[in-house]
Design a protein around this nucleic acid. Structure first.
Lengths: 123, 123
DNA sequence: GGAATAGTTCGACGTATGTCAACATAGATG
DNA sequence: CATCTATGTTGACATACGTCGAACTATTCC
């Protein structure tokens, strides 16, 4: 797997289920809300948001933990948050030698953005 | 959308700080993350997301509480969540006679959307 | 093998959160 | 004023969450 690529391009194996219809289209069902809320929740913590932003803004949309753990909390806490982001489907991780690299999952991000953008543009 | 006013004009009490640079541009500062996280957090609950979606998808982007309180939790809980969304700056409320109407705050929503969309599109 | 470095997992702690039932308030109506 | 309907507020409770230090795992290098 080539890792030098950048965010925008969605490869087949990165396809993510269309989590949710645009916010303004119709009231979300309980299931849709459950799914979408998980992603929003994952970004609903300042530390996680900083970690995510640090990774997303890093070269090639990926970064080693050592490059981003300067967010004011202990290292175990950083690890904990990265795990949460991973569980939410926003990040993937890969060990390369001594270091572990985290990458953003572009498709999910795009889905969330579309969800909000459509909501704001419509109406 | 037949509102008295539309997106662009921000009134003094509605002014929303340019909460955040695009996620991919550079690592967010602690303050930026703090601000942005609040909004994500507000949408990070399934019930709140459903309420918000119900309002956003309603005629003119506004709805009376009675129209949207069918989300499976008690009435006080609905009220509590609407308050949270309001505190997060995502909704505004107005009493008209017997009923209270909630409306979406388009500018904030647009900001959040841009933040994510840019992140997914940029690189 | 042993030591050093990079991350994760575990256990504990205080705080925040979602929920409800009960009570309170606002406006309409008799 | 009494009352009914529509919402908001309060107090209590169980659970979830963020955080840390200590212990554990993985990889490299001597």
């Amino acid at each position: 797997m080539s890792n030098t690529k950048v965010l925008p391009l969605l490869e087949p194996d990165e396809v993510v289920a269309p989590c949710c219809p645009p916010l303004t289209e119709r009231p979300m069902s309980a299931e849709e809300a459950e799914t979408a809320a998980k992603m929003f929740k994952a970004l609903g913590d300042p530390v996680r948001l900083r970690l995510f932003s640090a990774i997303a803004s890093h070269e090639g949309g990926e970064a080693c933990v050592c490059d981003i753990s300067d967010v004011g909390v202990s290292q175990p806490t950083v690890s904990h948050h990265l795990k949460k982001l991973k569980e939410a489907g926003l990040l993937t991780s890969e060990r390369r030698g001594t270091w572990v690299y985290y990458r953003v999952e572009p498709s999910v991000l795009a889905a969330m953005g579309a969800l909000l953008t459509t909501a704001a543009t419509a109406a």
